[in-house]
């Protein structure tokens, strides 16, 4: 990638995120919840942490350089511990005030499908991480990585709509992975863009690298990386009604960490259907009249 192009893109995406609206359901719920003086903090956290845009924006403000916290904050509930629910409420309201992401936009990108995939991947990645015990593995990090790993696509769809539309078409026509099409047409892929954003907001290095490398092979294995890759694979094609079973023969490298094969891992997960139903439910809401 050319240096000047990279800074130009960086500036553009940094700018884009400031005014990016959140997803319809979370905007509605945040407005509803914050109208109630007795709203339960856990309900508000539950809404915010399901929305990649709100999560990003809150973690961005909290990790900003001018407000150095003793530790890097990587989850919404952790930010509640440090800054209190009232501050989080105020931040979520300011995101809600920016409006809602449309279900599809100029790039022809299906935001609802994106949200279902991200939410389900986050839920499954957390579950996988917990299944291997959590001495050094933070299930919260797995969740955030799952939620944000494809965030670069939302940035593309909002700020590079024309090129991203072409990339989506190219990937479909030639049957090549989307990230390859993005590199060809935009010069950078969504994994790099997502990593760029979280790096700028000083997320822990492990999270930055994990997002950056999620389409790169031959990278050293870790629970965080493997939980994302396996969850990402499990949650492909979730717009169909049934839980997909077309991952046969496409197990990521780190699969064995969690079970003998994909089928047994899914068996062990047990509540996969529940995670997916919740994700669908969250993304299903129509725009309010």
């Amino acid at each position: 990638m050319v240096g000047t192009q990279s800074t130009d893109i960086e500036r553009k995406i940094g700018f884009a995120i400031e005014r990016m609206p959140a997803f319809p359901r979370s905007v509605q719920r945040v407005l509803e919840l914050t109208r109630d003086i007795n709203c339960r903090p856990k309900d508000l956290v539950g809404v915010i942490e399901k929305d990649p845009v709100m999560t990003m924006r809150i973690l961005k403000v909290i990790n900003s350089a001018y407000y150095a916290l003793p530790t890097r904050i990587a989850s919404v509930s952790q930010s509640v511990v440090y800054l209190g629910i009232n501050t989080i409420k105020s931040l979520s309201l300011s995101v809600a005030a920016a409006g809602m992401l449309p279900n599809s936009n100029l790039a022809g990108f299906d935001t609802r499908r994106y949200l279902i995939h991200s939410l389900a991947t986050a839920g499954v990645a957390r579950q996988l991480c917990m299944s291997v015990g959590h001495e050094d593995n933070d299930a919260g990090d797995s969740y955030v990585v799952g939620l944000l790993h494809d965030f670069g696509k939302v940035v593309f769809s909002q700020s590079f709509a024309a090129d991203f539309r072409k990339a989506l078409a190219l990937s479909a026509e030639e049957g090549i992975p989307l990230h390859e099409a993005e590199r060809r047409l935009i010069g950078i892929d969504h994994a790099q863009v997502g990593a760029m954003l979280v790096a700028k907001w000083t997320f822990p290095a492990a999270i930055v690298e994990c997002i950056r490398d999620h389409h790169t092979s031959g990278v050293a294995s870790s629970v965080l990386r493997d939980s994302l890759l396996v969850a990402d694979q499990i949650c492909r094609g979730l717009t169909k009604e049934d839980i997909p079973v077309d991952w046969e023969g496409r197990s990521p490298d780190g699969t064995t960490r969690f079970g003998d094969n994909m089928a047994s891992i899914i068996d062990k997960l047990g509540n996969l259907k529940k995670i997916i139903d919740e994700a669908r439910d969250f993304a299903q809401v129509e725009h309010s009249k």
Partner: peptide, 26 residues
Amino acid sequence: PWYNIYDPEDEGYAEFQEMIDLKQSV
């Protein structure tokens, strides 16, 4: 004093408790 926003039966309870225990000890 920091308190747990989750109920004991919630999934997030233990993790949250760990974080506030740490904060309190600091």
